[in-house]
Design a protein around this nucleic acid. Structure first.
Length: 684
RNA sequence: CGCGAGGUAGAGCAGUGGUAGCUCGUCGGGCUCAUAACCCGAAGGUCGCAGGUUCGAGUCCUGCCCUCGCUACCA
């Protein structure tokens, strides 16, 4: 076992609140892991903080007419408070906007800079002459060169799905000022990942083939086999950490360069406050570093950050990066922008004192091996059928019986029979089993093992039937209740990492001596509760969740998403005046769809065969997410007939079907009102 | 033929060559200490599809299909 542990959880980005996806993917598993280690009396630093730089925050601030500082202050506070009341027990939660982080990140950059690690390269990038700044690809919109969508982004066209480069756009426009961007030379520092391919291969592909999760390992393998590229670690932006070298005015560290360093600066801050030495947590070989992240972060935590650490020649590398997959919500992807999410701060208000329910549901259904779905139906079922019916009910039975028979005092046991011994033995083996599971990052399984103990308790009571024996053999009942109380105590202790609030509640109910609450106590102590020990008052550990609560949640979800949709999109402004000649150049015709087939291996493309007069044409159109094959056949549509043919996915598209797009992103055909219009009819 | 992960009972998952398992749900029975909770039993799967290797395949190989990610918001 390593001497100490540095556990990090992905730094939340302060442009929105925390939702259940973040919790299930990162914060709950990280918290379980750290709590478990602390119960083992390990030296643990559980580190996190707000990630507050980057383009997205700058953009959001501009949109809302605020300063970036206002945005990050607002969300940092919200996130900080909701983590706190949800019981994510960070040892330290910092912010990347703090001085200590700016210093640490700059030092880090300097170390690599002085070692000559970086490549310096000039490149031409789009520049907004009005806003006087360089534009990230996302800040540029224009007409897609492939599908002619006038609102394609600089990095991707959402209409046809093609990935683009901002310089390819026709009529590019800066989203900051509306000005037409120009190309301008700029100099940046690049991290030459390609020089570290062998390092990554040896370290991960050979060294961690069996102990890292397949999804993480596979992802890394995929990146490496595609060949690693140099990556710019600086940006032209006015929001971030200034690049600490000469000739770098107006440049900041790329947010992905500075963010992981936030783990280090947060550790420093924590160490300073607690009179500790931070270095050992990041440089000592006997420290085990573990990063908890979501799958989108794999490349940064398995390749880029490790390369930075390695290049510094100073820091240790992560022992494991147990990244989770994604959680969906009621069958759809969680989306901040579409407001399709369960927000933590709202949950905490609407389900007061029920943090553990969400913790349990998100753990039991965690996306450990593949994407999973969160539904309110399951939330309710797991609460009512598992937490209430199995765990809570067992405790309640034991408490009620003990108070009834012995006025709340733990009875003196007689001779233990085989069934008692069996139950106690199973119980004593559980800490090691759960521990093993947690150490292997299998939190889902750990939650089931814990529930297994409560299940065992119920069965033990059902088999022993103390409520019957109390009339015939009261001495035997004492032994039974004593045993059941030991199981209850074990539950209180072992529940701590997974259900910390309930664990505390239960310990208080049992009046459990804090000296007896370590992980090891369950395996070694004969009696966690001694005879004549007085229990506290009985209270319900969990409560039933009713149907109407769930209905309300579901309604809220759809309502919020709908409202968001209406507010979100405004129609694009009218384009510049054109001439009749230009319009006349377009040959629009009525055409009839006679066949429709989804293009294989694409999301949006549909291969249409249309009839224009007696001419048959093939048209590839990005409408597959909106329409089924069957409903298209027989439809009369408007076809732009003289558009230059273009090959999409190997199919030549001979024209373009005209569609209107409404606010919700739904497509509607623009065709002749009279569906009997003869196909081939020209439109003027 | 871009790469990676996943596709096992109604739902969520385990199972890397030797008679298909766990939890929840469903159905039937029992019990009454307990938040109509608990306990027992049963039904329910041609392990995405098609081939192949093997005495034997969910498990190995080949091809294909579906979902998700790698690609905005985002874990």
């Amino acid at each position: 076992m390593p001497k100490r542990f540095t556990v990090t959880a992905a730094l939340p980005y302060t442009n929105g609140p925390i939702h259940i996806g973040h919790l299930a993917g990162v914060y709950i598993p990280a918290d379980i892991y750290s709590r478990y280690l602390r119960l083992q009396n390990k030296d643990v630093a559980f580190i996190c903080g707000s990630d507050e730089h980057g383009v997205a925050i700058a953009l959001k601030a501009k949109k809302e007419g605020k300063t970036p500082q206002q945005i990050i202050d607002q969300y940092d506070q919200l996130i900080r408070e909701s983590f706190e009341s949800f019981g994510i027990a960070f040892d330290h939660y910092s912010r990347t906007s703090r001085k200590i982080h700016h210093q640490t990140a700059q030092e880090f950059f300097k170390i690599l800079y002085d070692k000559g690690v970086f490549e310096e390269k000039d490149s031409e990038q789009l520049y907004d002459p009005e806003a006087e700044q360089f534009l990230a690809d996302r800040f540029v919109t224009g007409t897609c060169p492939i599908c002619q969508n006038p609102e394609a982004y600089g990095d991707q066209c959402e209409s046809c799905g093609s990935s683009l480069s901002a310089t390819e756009l026709i009529h590019p426009k800066s989203t900051l000022s509306g000005a037409q961007p120009e190309l301008k030379k700029t100099r940046h520092w690049y991290l030459p990942l390609n020089q570290y391919e062998d390092f990554i291969k040896e370290w991960i592909l050979e060294g961690h083939q069996h102990d890292w999760k397949p999804n993480v390992y596979g992802q890394v393998k995929s990146w490496v086999s595609n060949g690693l590229q140099s990556r710019a670690v600086t940006r032209d932006l006015d929001w971030g950490i200034t690049v600490p070298v000469k000739n770098a005015e107006g440049k900041v560290l790329y947010v992905w360069f500075d963010a992981p360093i936030g783990y280090i600066s947060s550790t420093k801050e924590w160490a300073e406050k607690n009179g500790k030495e931070w270095e050992s947590y990041w440089t000592d070989k006997e420290t085990q570093l573990v990063h908890f992240i979501g799958k989108d972060n794999i490349v940064f935590h398995c390749i880029i950050f490790p390369v930075m650490l390695k290049a510094s020649d100073r820091f240790i590398l992560p022992e494991n990066v147990p990244a989770n997959e994604f959680l969906n919500l009621e069958g759809q992807k969680i989306s901040t922008s579409k407001n399709w999410a369960v927000w933590l701060h709202e949950y905490l208000k609407e389900f007061p004192d029920q943090q553990d329910v969400l913790r349990y549901v998100l753990t039991a259904n965690a996306p450990e091996t593949k994407d999973n779905d969160f539904t309110w139906e399951e939330f309710q079922a797991r609460n009512n059928n598992e937490l209430v019916a199995i765990f809570g009910n067992f405790i309640n039975r034991v408490m009620v019986l003990t108070h009834k028979y012995y006025d709340g005092y733990v009875p003196e046991p007689g001779t233990l029979e085989q069934e008692d011994l069996d139950a106690l033995e199973t119980m004593a083996k559980l800490p090691a089993k759960i521990g093993q599971t947690i150490e292997n990052y299998r939190f889902r399984e750990a939650s089931q093992q814990l529930m297994g103990l409560a299940r065992l308790g119920n069965k033990y009571l059902a088999d022993a039937e103390p409520w019957k024996l109390i009339k015939t053999d009261p001495e035997r009942v004492k032994t039974i209740m004593h045993t059941a109380l030991q199981i209850s105590s074990a539950l209180a202790i072992l529940a701590e990492p997974l259900l910390p609030f309930s664990s505390t509640k239960l310990k208080n109910m049992l009046n459990l001596d804090s000296k007896n609450t370590s992980w090891a106590a369950v395996e070694t102590q004969k009696a966690l509760l001694e005879p004549k020990h007085l229990l506290g008052k009985t209270a319900l550990l969990f409560k039933q969740i009713e149907d109407d609560q769930m209905d309300a949640q579901r309604k809220k979800l759809t309502a919020a998403a709908l409202e968001n949709n209406i507010e979100e999109k405004l129609f694009a402004p009218v384009k510049p005046t054109t001439s009749f000649k230009d319009f006349d150049a377009l040959d629009l015709r009525v055409a009839e769809i006679i066949q429709a087939k989804k293009v294989r291996k694409t999301k949006k493309l549909m291969e249409l065969t249309v009839l224009m007069g007696d001419e048959e044409r093939t048209v590839v159109s990005g409408i597959a997410t909106n329409f089924e094959e069957a409903e298209l056949v027989g439809k009369k549509v408007t076809l732009l007939a003289n558009l230059k043919p273009r090959s999409l996915k190997g199919i030549e598209s001979q024209g373009m079907v005209l569609l209107g797009e409404n606010q919700g992103g739904h497509l509607v055909f623009v065709g002749p009102e009279d569906q009997t219009t003869v196909s081939g009819t020209p439109i003027k």
